Computed example of a mutant assay.
Amino acid sequence: MLNISATRRRNRTAAELNMAPLIDMVFLLLIFFLVNTSFVKETGIDVSRPTAATAAVKPNAMILIAVDRANRIFMDRREIDLRAVRANVERALAENPEGAVVVADKESSTGVAVQVMDACRLAGASTVSLAAGLPEQGG
Results as ranks from 00 to 15, higher is better:
M1H: 11
N3H: 09
I4H: 11
S5F: 11
A6P: 07
T7L: 13
R8Q: 11
N11S: 12
N11M: 13
T13L: 08
T13N: 05
A15D: 11
A15N: 11
L17S: 07
L17E: 09
N18V: 15
M19F: 14
A20L: 15
D24C: 15
D24R: 14
M25D: 12
M25Q: 13
L30I: 13
I31L: 14
I31V: 15
F32R: 08
F32P: 00
L34I: 10
L34K: 09
V35Y: 07
S38D: 08
T43H: 04
T43M: 03
G44T: 01
G44L: 03
I45W: 00
I45P: 02
V47A: 01
V47W: 02
P50G: 01
P50D: 12
T51M: 08
A53E: 12
A56V: 13
A56F: 05
P59N: 10
M62T: 10
I63F: 09
L64F: 11
L64K: 04
A66Y: 02
A66W: 02
V67H: 00
D68N: 14
R69E: 14
A70P: 14
N71D: 15
N71F: 00
N71C: 10
N71Y: 01
N71L: 05
R72Q: 14
I73L: 02
F74Q: 01
F74N: 03
R77W: 04
R78V: 06
D81A: 08
D81F: 04
R83W: 12
V85K: 05
R86A: 07
A87M: 14
A87L: 10
N88V: 04
R91I: 00
R91K: 15
A92I: 04
A94H: 12
A94S: 14
E95H: 13
N96C: 14
P97F: 08
E98G: 09
G99C: 03
A100V: 04
A100P: 08
V101R: 02
D105E: 15
K106G: 08
S108H: 06
G111Y: 10
G111K: 06
V114H: 06
Q115G: 04
Q115M: 15
D118K: 04
C120R: 04
R121H: 05
R121E: 07
A123P: 05
A123L: 06
G124V: 03
G124F: 06
S129L: 09
L130K: 08
L130E: 02
L130D: 03
A131D: 05
A131Y: 03
A132D: 11
G133T: 13
P135K: 06
P135V: 06
P135I: 04
P135C: 06
P135L: 13
E136D: 13
Q137I: 07
G138R: 08
